[in-house]
Simulated scan of single mutants.
Amino acid sequence: MNRPARLAAAVLTASMAVLTTACGSGGGDSSAAPIKGSDAGDGKTSAVPSASASPGGVKRPEIKLSPDFRADFENWTNSDATLQAILNDGREELRSKYAAIIEADPESKAVAFYNSDATRATARRWIRQFTDDGDSIIGRVRVFDPQVRLGDTGSGVLFYCVDEREASTKNRKTNKVVKTPDKPESLVQYRLRLDKSSQGVWKTTSLTTVPGACS
């Protein structure tokens, strides 16, 4: 996505291949072909549970988005409990970054909670591209077509698409709004690998974004 509208495909430099503008070296299973037969769900937008409803007894951070911005997760359900847990934590990883942009907080504890050492620094650099320019985000993104499975090593593999065409950046001082271009590149595929921590949290350990892959 062209600056300054750059929700996901911002200009990024990733030493460990996370959050890249094109198809970076995500490593492991995260760069594999799209996953088939992943039990996507019933087609409805999934509700987002509160922190108090977190599974497994782990206290997860509460993530709130501004009323001016929505992230709608469609078909975000799976009949397998482990795969559902991966979906849940993958969803919250993305929401934590949106919330950090809105709150102008690159050091967000929620971002740190859902990211490993390998991805945390790059996630924060992405957030700072907004906060350094004084920008927040408004509008709506649609997060859809989740494909999830367990890899041969026990890592979670999660692919999903984000449609950013109804979202915009808004400058905090000038109130200038820049809309996301209505182009195929504004539909971005995310490819994640997640590993389960000792606390039972599926942390993102690699992430690649591919603009236009979902068009």
Rank of each mutant, 00 (worst) to 15 (best):
G28Y: 10
S54L: 11
K176D: 14
D195S: 15
P146V: 13
I102V: 07
G134H: 06
G139N: 04
G27L: 06
S206L: 07
A71W: 09
L187C: 09
K203L: 14
F73N: 02
R124Y: 14
V143S: 05
N2P: 06
G41L: 00
I127F: 08
P106Y: 12
G41D: 13
V48M: 00
T169S: 05
D89M: 08
D195M: 13
G151R: 05
R124T: 01
W126L: 04
G212L: 07
E93L: 07
R172G: 11
K170R: 10
R149H: 09
K59C: 04
A123L: 13
T82P: 07
G151Q: 05
S197K: 11
L158K: 13
S15A: 04
A104V: 02
S52C: 08
V58W: 04
M16F: 05
E185A: 15
A118G: 06
K170M: 05
M1Q: 03
N78L: 08
Q199W: 03
E103F: 01
E185N: 11
V210M: 10
Y190R: 15
I63Q: 02
R140S: 04
A53F: 07
F144C: 02
E166F: 01
G24P: 13
F73D: 11
V157R: 11
F144I: 02
T153P: 03
S50L: 13
F159L: 14
S38H: 11
N75I: 03
P211G: 03
V178I: 02
S116Y: 08
D133E: 12
T208V: 15
A121N: 10
T45M: 04
V58Y: 11
R191I: 04
G56W: 10
R95Q: 12
S155Q: 15
K64N: 14
R149Y: 08
L207F: 05
A123T: 09
K176G: 01
A110S: 15
A85I: 14
K196G: 05
K170C: 00
F73L: 03
P211W: 15
G24I: 01
G41I: 06
S25C: 02
I102H: 01
R3M: 00
G57W: 08
V178H: 02
T45R: 04
A213N: 13
S46Q: 09
R149G: 00
I127P: 08
Y190H: 15
P181W: 12
G24V: 00
Q84C: 10
E107V: 10
A112E: 05
V188C: 09
Y190G: 13
A81F: 00
S155V: 06
R125N: 09
A5D: 00
Y160F: 15
E92A: 07
A5I: 10
T77M: 03
T20Q: 13
F69H: 05
E74N: 13
S54M: 06
D133V: 03
N88E: 15
R6H: 14
A110I: 06
V178E: 06
V18E: 07
L19Q: 00
S168N: 07
N88L: 15
A53Y: 05
V58F: 08
D68L: 11
V178Q: 10
M1N: 02
A10P: 03
I127L: 11
L12M: 12
G26P: 02
R149F: 03
A9C: 04
A100P: 10
T13K: 07
I35F: 01
Q199P: 01
R6L: 12
S186I: 14
G134M: 00
T209D: 05
R91P: 00
F113N: 01
